[in-house]
């Protein structure tokens, strides 16, 4: 018994040392901040403010959140003049690339002298962005454009109705309680993700992504109710008009490589055409990245998604994808 207790003491001490070592390792390997509540409602949550984050599980990102816990190189202060506001999901959050390489970062460089503010946060698919649109305008009052990202054009009537009724599910924060305390340790947080991956049949690359943003292969018909979508876009337009700003929605399709090495794009021509028509009707600029992605692949063998440590062409936007999108946006608004 005595020898067992002796060994248990050593094991406990060793576990503490190992925990410290692994925490240090995870600070460099995968250190994600915690969700904090956002009282402004511009996003469902924000990350911890002034947090130095690292990401090596997909791509390689190193950066610091600003005072609002958002991925911007500068702090935001009340009344600050914002020219362009970027809204979107984890693609716009762009934790996998350097902040200067994200769409917002590149637009800032291209539109020198203008303030581009990025409020892209994981899980904020198109419908969540629409739900938060009014609050975002109220908070930041962008003088020129609001840019909204979407990686899919497949929206259920239920999700569009939720936008119109103000009943879109909110993404919870988890900065308090035991979960909040434990998830502040990068090793424990990573272990939680890994174990979820093991028990759930694999870690999702685009975790928290809005289910509505899955591209559809419908071919013939648009993948949403046109009347409902028109009402959603109309409400966006009215909000934007009230704040004297314009809207740009860009769509970046997910791509695959087929067995012959050709780029496979979603067969969603009808959905894109319908969405484009509705945008035009509501004075919204619609940017479709499909052709640009195809051209970059055909001419330069470049893919917009995927990284040097993940599946080829799958996952989040990489630095080329961000560059292509920023370039096309610049052509439209620059």
């Amino acid at each position: 018994m005595k020898s067992f207790l002796n060994w248990a003491g050593k094991a406990f001490l060793a576990a503490c040392f190992a925990f410290l070592v692994m925490t240090g390792f995870c600070v460099l390997y995968d250190n994600t901040p915690v969700h904090y509540p956002n009282s402004s409602g511009a996003t469902d949550y924000t990350w911890a403010p002034h947090f130095l984050y690292t990401e090596l599980t997909e791509g390689a990102g190193l950066g610091r959140t600003n005072n609002e816990g958002l991925m911007n190189p500068y702090d935001y202060s009340d009344g600050m003049e914002i020219d362009i506001l970027v809204m979107g999901s984890s693609h716009m959050e762009a934790k996998q690339v350097a902040q200067s390489e994200s769409v917002a970062g590149r637009l800032s460089a291209l539109l020198s002298g203008k303030h581009v503010y990025n409020i892209g946060v994981s899980g904020h698919g198109f419908t969540t962005c629409c739900a938060n649109f009014e609050a975002a305008l109220r908070r930041y009052r962008p003088s020129e454009y609001v840019i909204i990202e979407t990686s899919g054009l497949d929206f259920s009537a239920e999700s569009l109705n939720a936008v119109l009724n103000g009943t879109v599910d909110e993404i919870p924060d988890h900065s308090t309680g035991l979960v909040g305390f434990l998830s502040k340790n990068p090793f424990l947080r990573l272990v939680y993700h890994q174990l979820s991956g093991f028990t759930g049949g694999g870690r999702k690359i685009l975790e928290d992504e809005d289910e509505d943003d899955v591209p559809v292969n419908d071919g013939e018909e648009s993948a949403f109710d046109r009347t409902l979508m028109d009402r959603v876009l109309c409400s966006l337009r009215e909000s934007a008009a009230a704040y004297g700003t314009k809207i740009l929605i860009f769509y970046h399709p997910t791509t695959q490589i087929d067995r012959e090495g050709e780029l496979l794009l979603p067969d969603d021509g009808a959905a894109r055409a319908a969405f484009s028509d509705l945008c035009a009707k509501n004075d919204i600029i619609f940017l479709d990245m499909t052709e640009r992605f195809q051209r970059e692949y055909d001419e330069n063998h470049l893919l917009a998604h995927g990284f040097f440590n993940s599946s080829v062409g799958n996952g989040h936007l990489n630095k080329y994808g961000h560059e292509m999108i920023a370039d096309e946006i610049y052509k439209l608004i620059g």
Partner: peptide, 16 residues
């Protein structure tokens, strides 16, 4: 303690 620390660290690396 040294051996156990190394062992637990490798276990942690495997999980992470």
């Amino acid at each position: 303690v040294g051996g156990l620390t190394l062992f637990f660290t490798v276990c942690g690396l495997v999980i992470a």
